[in-house]
Amino acid sequence: MKLNFTSLEYFLKAAEMEHLTKAAEALHIAQPALSRTIRGLEEELNVTLFEKEGRNIRLTRDGHILLKYTENFLREYKAMQQELEDSRNLQQLKVNLSILSATKLIPSFLAEFRKAHPEAILEIINPKMQASARHADLTLYSSIHHIDDDHTVTLFRENLVMVLPLADRHARLPYVNLEDFAHKNYIAPPKGFVLRDILETFCQKAGFSPKVVMESDNPDTIHEFVNAGLGIALVPQMTWYGAFSGLAALPVGDMDCHRYLNLSWKTEGKLSLSAVLLREYIVDHFWEYVREKANSEFPM
Rank of each mutant, 00 (worst) to 15 (best):
Ala79Val: 01
Phe113Asp: 03
Arg36Met: 01
Ala248Leu: 01
Pro127Met: 02
Asp220Met: 12
Ala15Gly: 04
Ile147Pro: 04
Val47Ile: 15
Tyr260Thr: 13
Leu277Glu: 08
Ser108Pro: 00
Thr152Ala: 12
Ala233Leu: 08
Ala249Gln: 09
Ser272Phe: 11
Thr267Ile: 10
Ala14Cys: 01
Asn218Thr: 09
Glu297Tyr: 13
Ala171Gly: 03
Asp180Glu: 14
Lys270His: 10
Pro127Trp: 01
Arg39Glu: 05
Leu140His: 06
Glu9Lys: 14
Ile106Tyr: 00
Ser143Met: 06
Leu97Ile: 05
Ser216Ala: 02
Lys270Trp: 11
Ala102Cys: 01
Val161Asp: 13
Thr239Lys: 04
Ala133Lys: 01
Lys128Ala: 05
Ala79Gly: 00
Ser209Thr: 15
Leu34Gly: 11
Phe109Gly: 11
Gln82Ser: 05
Met129Asn: 08
Phe73Ile: 15
Leu74Cys: 11
Leu41Cys: 09
Leu138Pro: 00
Val153His: 05
Ile232Lys: 04
Tyr186Arg: 12
Leu195Trp: 07
Asp149Cys: 04
Ile124Glu: 08
Gln82Thr: 05
Asp86Arg: 12
Val194Trp: 13
Gln237Arg: 04
Ala182Gln: 12
Asn159Leu: 13
Asn4Leu: 06
Thr201Lys: 10
Gly192Leu: 06
Arg75Phe: 12
Gln31Asn: 06
Gln91Leu: 14
Glu297Ala: 11
Ile125Val: 15
Leu84Thr: 10
Glu179Ala: 09
Ser35His: 12
Arg196Tyr: 14
Pro251Leu: 15
Phe225Cys: 11
Lys270Thr: 04
Leu166Phe: 00
Leu250Trp: 15
Ala233Arg: 03
Lys191Val: 07
Ala24Tyr: 12
Leu178Cys: 11
His258Lys: 02
Gly40Val: 06
Pro236Leu: 05
Arg36Glu: 00
Ala102Arg: 03
His145Thr: 03
Tyr175Val: 12
Leu166Trp: 00
Leu84Phe: 04
Gly207Arg: 05
Pro118Arg: 00
Leu155Thr: 06
Glu112Gly: 06
Phe225Arg: 08
Glu224Val: 06
Glu83Val: 01
Met238Trp: 10
Trp287Met: 03
Leu41Asp: 07
Ile38Val: 12
Lys266Phe: 13
Ser209Trp: 14
Tyr186Trp: 13
Asp62His: 13
Phe156Gly: 08
Leu199Arg: 04
Arg55Lys: 03
Leu122Met: 06
Arg291Lys: 09
Leu97Cys: 10
Ile198Asp: 08
Lys68Val: 11
Asn262Cys: 14
Ala102Asn: 04
Val163Pro: 02
Val176Glu: 05
Leu66Thr: 02
Val163Arg: 00
Asn295Leu: 09
Ala15Met: 07
Val213Asn: 01
Leu278Tyr: 12
Lys205Ala: 06
Lys184Asp: 15
Glu9Tyr: 04
Ala294Tyr: 02
Phe156Leu: 14
Thr152Ser: 15
Gln82His: 06
Val283Thr: 14
Ile222Gln: 11
Glu76Ser: 07
Ala30Gln: 13
Ala275Pro: 11
Ala167Gly: 03
Leu122Cys: 05
Asn177Ile: 02
Leu263Asp: 13
